[in-house]
Simulated assay, not measured.
Amino acid sequence: MHRPTLAHTFAERLPDMVAEVVPTDFPNPQVAVLNEPLAAELGIETEWLRTAEGTAWLAGSSGGHATAYAGHQFGQFVPLLGDGRALLLGDIDGREIQLKGSGRTPFSRPGSDGRGAIGPMLREHLVSEFMHAVGIPTTRSLAVVATGEHVIRQQGRVPGGILVRVATSHLRVGSVQYAATQSPALVEEVIRAAGFDTPLELLNTVVDRQLGLVAQWMRIGFVHGVMNTDNTALSGETIDYGPCAFTEDFDLSAVFSSIDTAGRYAFGNQPSIIAWNLARLAEAMFPLLDLDAAREVFASIQSRWDELWARQQESGPEVPLFLPRNRMLQDALNAAEAGGDYAPYRALLAAVTDPYNPEAGPEWMTRPEESGPFTTYCGT
Rank of each mutant, 00 (worst) to 15 (best):
G114F: 05
V127T: 13
P137S: 13
V33K: 03
L81K: 00
V18A: 14
L49R: 00
E20A: 15
L42A: 01
H132K: 08
G63T: 10
L126D: 01
F130Y: 10
A19T: 04
M131H: 11
D16F: 11
I97S: 00
G64S: 10
F26Q: 02
F74I: 03
T24H: 15
P29R: 00
A59K: 05
A68Q: 09
I97N: 00
F74G: 06
A133S: 12
A19V: 09
G82L: 11
F74N: 08
L81Q: 00
G43H: 06
G101P: 05
D16R: 15
D83N: 08
L87Y: 08
R85L: 05
L42F: 02
S112L: 04
D93N: 14
A39S: 08
P27R: 11
L87V: 05
A11P: 05
P79E: 12
R13D: 10
H72Q: 02
G82A: 14
A117V: 06
G63L: 14
M17G: 11
M131R: 01
S61M: 13
A86W: 06
G94M: 08
S141P: 09
G94D: 08
R140L: 10
I136V: 12
V33H: 01
D16Y: 10
D25L: 15
H72F: 07
L122F: 15
A66P: 04
A56K: 06
G63Q: 04
G75M: 06
P110I: 12
E96H: 04
I118E: 01
M131E: 11
L58N: 02
H65W: 15
W48H: 12
T147N: 13
E53Q: 15
A117P: 03
V145W: 02
L38N: 02
V127R: 10
F130L: 03
G101D: 09
S141I: 12
D25N: 09
L81T: 00
Q30A: 12
G84K: 08
P137L: 12
